[in-house]
Design a binder for these strands. Structure first.
Length: 421
RNA sequence: GGAGGGGUGUCCGAGUGGUUAAAGGAGACGGGCUGUAAACCCGUUGGCGUAGCCUACGUUGGUUCGAAUCCAACCCCCUCCA
């Protein structure tokens, strides 16, 4: 591994270093030279444990995007095969195995996310998506691991005399207990063969796996193989990115609305604005430097720009502009006309009037009536921007504005228009 | 295969017969201060139209007036030995 140097010659590595993507690289200078000389094919693997990706993977996605933008070819490797085993790194307990059908479904969901960020096709720098089940399944290795391998505890195997002595004598220990590593490494070798892939990228937690892969590709076929990792991106508060109230910040619309996605970025901490602009937008570095230098409350302008740019990438320009406008109306004008998220409630119920805590529940702002009551007691609930003081205060169609909807709020940031149907 | 330890709410983690809807912490939500930020302070944090009732401490049974707590069987995890 070589220390990344700021004076990269290739456009790709220059972007990586300057924008803060670079953490470790197996051979920075050689990779840099290669990237200057010719288009490099590189891949990042994604597992299929969920049907969408969230902000935690965004650094990786953006890295592929830059790769493509700077004239190289990205491969998105879906871990259809490896997901059947589960990555042990960073996990303190074994994960539940998920079904093959589930994996297929998840893969389809993830594919739709990527189409927003990369250009797919058959051209020399078009992105391609491949599934490692294509080659791993043929090995007939996975059925064995699923059925038999799960019953063996590595912890225990390591304590066995035969193994222990080998470790103590510093002799190589191969195979069964390192299945995931082996299969992942095999991916690199296979991609090098099939697609001429020369670079694997990933988060710093994947460093071990990536180095193994590059090694294997080199040994098996003498392929030119490099690895590169990004730093773990946390907020300045030290928290992992992408976890909030509702859980993860998903990248697709049906898991998280464009408006909420916009809000996520809008609420970026002061200290993170510059870093996030570099990582998560395509914006020019000079412009970012200017925005980052803004002081105090002015920094809010930079956050809005960040939010709109990031949202445009995941949800499209129009959705981003709409989210920004909705936010402006809701926060800066306090208007009810805003295009806020809506919820439906039966007309007869609303006509008769329901207690406020039930209305909050209907609007989806709280998960139970009890939570609604608590919210009201805590002073966080409002109808049409007026605080609700008693939890049995009646909400009915009389509270509806000119557009026929009742605006309910939980706290300052969460608003819903309740409509009768 | 043998011996021991353990499975508690979103998570971590106390709790070894009753006043335990279950300490404490984290997280989350709400309020205050602000700039829709951070930090800090305060409150809330199973469900039910709140009255008491219901549901909850791996699963299923049992003992008891009463069980997260005792017993049995089963499932899962861990540690040590072979």
């Amino acid at each position: 591994m070589t220390t990344p140097t700021p004076e990269a010659q290739s456009e790709f590595l220059r972007a990586m270093t300057e924008r803060g993507f670079m953490h470790q690289c197996t051979d920075f200078a050689a990779l840099d030279a290669k990237a200057v000389r010719e288009p490099v094919t590189a891949y990042i693997g994604f597992d299929c444990t969920a049907d969408s990706l969230h902000v935690g993977s965004l650094v990786q996605i953006m890295m592929l995007r830059w790769l493509q933008k700077t004239g190289h070819k990205p491969i998105v490797l879906m871990g259809g095969g490896t997901t059947k085993i589960g990555d042990p790194s960073g996990k303190d307990e074994a994960r539940q195995l998920i079904t093959v059908e589930q994996i297929q479904q998840n893969m389809a969901g993830i594919r739709s996310v990527f189409e927003k960020f990369l250009t797919f096709g058959d051209g020399p720098t078009d992105a391609v998506m491949v599934d490692n089940a294509e080659w791993l399944d043929e090995l007939k290795y996975i059925p064995l691991l699923r059925d038999v391998g799960r019953h063996f505890s590595v912890n225990r195997m390591l304590t066995m005399d035969s193994v222990k002595t080998r470790l103590e004598r510093d002799q190589p220990l191969s195979f069964l207990e390192f299945n995931y590593m082996i299969l992942q490494a095999y991916d690199f070798a296979e991609l090098a063969r099939r697609h001429g892939c020369a670079l694997q990228m990933g988060g710093s937690d994947q460093w071990g796996n990536i180095v193994m892969g590059a090694d294997l590709a080199r040994r098996m076929d003498g392929s030119e193989a490099y690895g590169l990792t990004t730093p773990l991106i946390t907020t300045s508060g030290g928290a992992k990115m992408g976890k909030t109230a509702a859980g993860a910040i998903w990248l697709n619309e049906d898991r998280l609305s464009a408006y909420d996605y916009w809000q996520f970025w809008r609420n970026t901490g002061d200290d993170d604005v510059g870093r996030f602009l570099r990582l998560f937008t395509d914006m020019d570095l000079a412009e970012i430097a200017r925005l980052e230098a803004l002081d105090g409350a002015e920094l809010n302008e930079a956050k809005k720009i960040l939010a709109t740019a990031a949202t445009a990438m995941a949800h499209g320009q129009a959705a981003a502009a709409a989210a920004a406008e909705t936010a402006r109306q809701a926060f800066e004008l306090g208007s009810q006309e805003a295009d806020l998220p809506t919820a439906d409630a039966p007309r007869d119920q609303l006509e008769a009037g329901v207690p406020a805590f039930v209305a909050l529940n209907l609007a989806g702002l709280v998960k139970s009536n009890g939570e609604g009551r608590r919210l009201i007691k805590g002073g966080g609930a409002r109808v049409n921007d007026k605080p609700i003081t008693a939890d049995d205060q009646t909400i009915s169609l009389k509270d509806a504005g000119p557009n026929g909807a009742i605006k309910l709020s939980a706290g300052k940031k969460r608003h819903v228009l309740l409509r009768a149907v």
